[in-house]
């Protein structure tokens, strides 16, 4: 079993925290990853900044712009994972747009990330139709491939999505971009149930999960939740890096406590 699937088999609800690589700085990313992991995150999703992501709302978009301005690149993000791995074994997933992968060289990207210690990939602009270009190479390198299912997905598409997934299945709660709408638990419940009937993989719910109470509600019907925009908000609001690390830890702890209660 992969490190990611394992992480969700610890007898409690899963919690994935999204962080932007290089926001506020690449050097600071290590401490943020540790803080989220030590305070109850099971998996860290590291977003690699891209100038034109299409599924992200203003909060994550702004964090991408800031990270790019500070010189964050895919190469440096991979180097950062090497550094993280020296002192932290948190399961790590890269979330990035397909262009960055193609630009790096798709095959080389897979081996470079896998050897750095990345456990899995989320490529939001690669649906099942374009999966052939990336997934076989990822699997060959030993990376999990986390595919997205949406409220608009038909059952037929869902079946193909879970088939191509490994690690976990990512259910998008809202018809919208990240951070724009609050997820409605009732609407997600039906689709998550359908997905769960199709796979043994954990199914986690992301998009529109904003606070601990809502995380609890969303985790009841799923195997756990993914929180991105709210984590970035907490980091951005902090006065300095030290505070950001502390505040993120506090936030993650509060979510963990709520979903475990």
């Amino acid at each position: 079993m992969s490190a990611i699937t394992n992480a969700f088999n610890r007898g409690h609800k899963g919690l994935v925290i999204f962080l932007t690589a290089g926001a506020p700085s690449l050097a600071g990313t290590l401490d943020l990853v540790k803080s989220a992991y030590d305070n109850g995150a099971d998996v860290i999703e590291l977003g690699i900044p891209f100038s034109d992501p299409l599924a992200d709302g203003p909060v994550i978009l702004e964090s991408f712009y800031r990270a790019i301005k500070k010189g964050t690149t895919l190469k440096k993000s991979i180097e950062t994972v090497h550094t993280i791995r020296k002192s932290c074994d948190a399961p790590l997933v890269f979330m990035l747009s397909s262009t960055l992968i193609i630009n790096h060289g798709t095959k080389k990207f897979m081996t470079d990330t896998a050897s750095a210690g990345v456990d899995g990939l989320i490529i939001p602009d690669v649906p099942i139709e374009e999966a052939d270009e990336f997934l076989p190479l990822a699997k060959k390198a030993g990376l999990d491939t986390i595919m997205l299912a949406a409220p608009t997905s038909t059952p037929q598409r869902m079946r193909a999505i879970v088939k191509l997934s490994s690690g976990f299945v990512y259910y998008i709660n809202v018809t919208g971009v990240t951070g724009a709408k609050k997820a409605a638990p009732k609407e997600s419940a039906k689709n998550i149930k359908t997905l769960k009937s199709m796979t043994k993989l954990p199914v986690l719910a992301g998009f529109g999960v904003t606070d601990p109470q809502q995380a609890k509600a969303m985790s009841k019907m799923s195997d756990g939740v993914i929180i991105g925009t709210q984590a970035i908000r907490v980091i951005t609001a902090a006065k300095n890096q030290k505070r950001a690390v502390a505040d993120l830890g506090k936030f993650v702890k509060s979510v963990r406590k709520e979903i475990d209660s």
Binding site: L54, S98, D125, P127, M147, L148, A150, S153, R157
Partner: peptide, 18 residues
């Protein structure tokens, strides 16, 4: 599948595919 050899395709989030 919407390709002109290697070009074209549908590189979008699942939400839009249907």
């Amino acid at each position: 599948s919407g390709h002109f050899d290697q070009f074209g395709g549908r590189y979008v989030i699942e939400t839009l595919m249907p």
